[in-house]
Amino acid sequence: EVYKVKIKIERVLPNGEKVEEEITIEVEGMSEEELLALARELAAEPGVRIKEIEIEKLPP
């Protein structure tokens, strides 16, 4: 199964400015739980906050 994972994050820059970013990846052969863990890892940097995680199962 192939999933499209869209992660919206908010990053706080050293000057205090907040910037929103969106990361989209396609992943194959992982469960939804593994995808959530991967998304959290991607956003685990200091000053980064996850705003939204969207997981979509793509048709075969």
Rank of each mutant, 00 (worst) to 15 (best):
E41N: 14
E28F: 11
L35I: 13
L13D: 03
R11K: 07
E32R: 07
A44P: 04
L13P: 01
E28D: 08
E32C: 05
V48K: 02
K4I: 06
E34M: 14
T24H: 10
K51D: 02
V5P: 00
K57L: 10
E54G: 08
E26I: 11
V5N: 00
E34H: 08
E10C: 07
E22S: 08
P59Q: 10
K57T: 06
P46L: 13
I23H: 05
L36R: 10
G16P: 00
V12W: 09
T24I: 11
E1H: 12
E22R: 05
L13K: 09
L36K: 06
K6L: 12
M30C: 06
E33C: 11
P14K: 07
A43E: 06
I23G: 00
E45T: 15
E20S: 06
V27C: 06
E28N: 10
S31I: 07
E28W: 14
E52A: 11
I23P: 00
R40S: 05
V2R: 13
E17R: 11
G16E: 02
M30H: 08
I55S: 02
S31F: 06
E1S: 14
G16S: 02
I55A: 02
L35Y: 05
E45P: 05
V5W: 08
K8V: 10
E34W: 15
V5F: 13
E41V: 15
R40D: 02
I7E: 00
I50S: 00
T24C: 06
V12R: 07
E22F: 07
L58S: 09
K57S: 08
V5Y: 09
P59W: 13
E10I: 11
V2Y: 13
E1F: 13
G29K: 10
L42M: 13
S31A: 05
G29E: 06
E17I: 13
I7H: 00
E41P: 02
R40N: 03
L42E: 01
I23Y: 11
E56N: 07
E32L: 10
L13Y: 11
E1Q: 12
L36A: 06
I7Q: 00
Y3V: 03
P60Y: 01
E34R: 14
P59S: 14
K51P: 00
R11E: 00
R49C: 06
A44V: 10
A39D: 00
I7A: 01
P59G: 13
I7F: 15
T24N: 06
E54D: 07
A39N: 01
V12L: 10
L35P: 03
K18Y: 13
P46I: 09
K18A: 09
V48W: 06
N15Q: 03
I53P: 00
I53Q: 01
E41I: 15
K6D: 01
V12T: 15
E32V: 14
L58G: 09
K51F: 12
E41F: 15
E21I: 10
E1V: 14
I9M: 08
L58Y: 13
K6W: 14
I53D: 00
L38K: 06
V19A: 05
V27P: 01
E1D: 08
I50Y: 01
I53M: 06
L35E: 00
P60S: 12
E41S: 14
A39W: 13
E56I: 14
R49K: 11
K4P: 00
E34F: 15
A44K: 14
R11L: 03
E52R: 13
L38P: 01
V2L: 12
E45D: 09
L13G: 07
P14Q: 05
K51E: 03
V19Y: 07
P59N: 12
E1C: 11
E34L: 13
V5G: 01
G16T: 01
R11Y: 06
R49M: 08
V48F: 05
L42I: 06
I50V: 07
E26W: 12
E33M: 14
P14I: 06
R40T: 06
P14W: 15
R40W: 14
E54L: 15
E21N: 06
E45Y: 12
A43R: 04
E22H: 09
A37V: 13
I7G: 00
A39C: 07
E20Y: 14
K57R: 06
E10W: 14
K4V: 04
E34D: 07
P59M: 13
I55Y: 06
E21D: 10
L35T: 12
G47E: 06
E1I: 11
A44H: 08
M30T: 04
E56R: 11
A39F: 12
S31V: 09
L58W: 12
E28K: 06
V5Q: 00
L35A: 10
R11C: 03
V2H: 12
G47Y: 04
A44W: 13
K57F: 13
E17L: 10
V5L: 15
R49V: 09
I9F: 09
A39R: 05
I50N: 00
E22A: 07
V27N: 03
G47L: 03
E10M: 09
I53Y: 03
L36P: 02
K18I: 15
V27A: 09
I50P: 00
K8W: 15
A37P: 02
I9T: 03
E20Q: 13
E32G: 06
I9P: 00
P59R: 08
G47V: 02
I53K: 00
T24Y: 09
P59C: 08
E54Q: 07
I23K: 03
E33H: 15
I9E: 00
G16Q: 03
P59T: 14
A43D: 06
G47K: 02
E21M: 11
L35N: 01
E22Q: 12
K4Y: 05
I55R: 03
K18F: 09
L35Q: 02
R49D: 07
E22W: 09
K51I: 12
E54H: 14
L42V: 05
L35F: 07
E34A: 15
V2S: 07
E32M: 13
L36F: 12
K57Y: 12
K8P: 00
G16R: 02
I55T: 02
L35D: 00
T24P: 01
I55D: 00
E21Y: 14
E32P: 14
E54R: 14
E17Q: 13
I25Y: 05
G29A: 11
E52C: 06
K6P: 00
E32Y: 09
E34V: 15
E32I: 13
K18Q: 05
E41T: 15
L58N: 04
K8C: 04
E1G: 13
L38V: 05
G29Y: 08
V19W: 07
K57Q: 09
A44S: 12
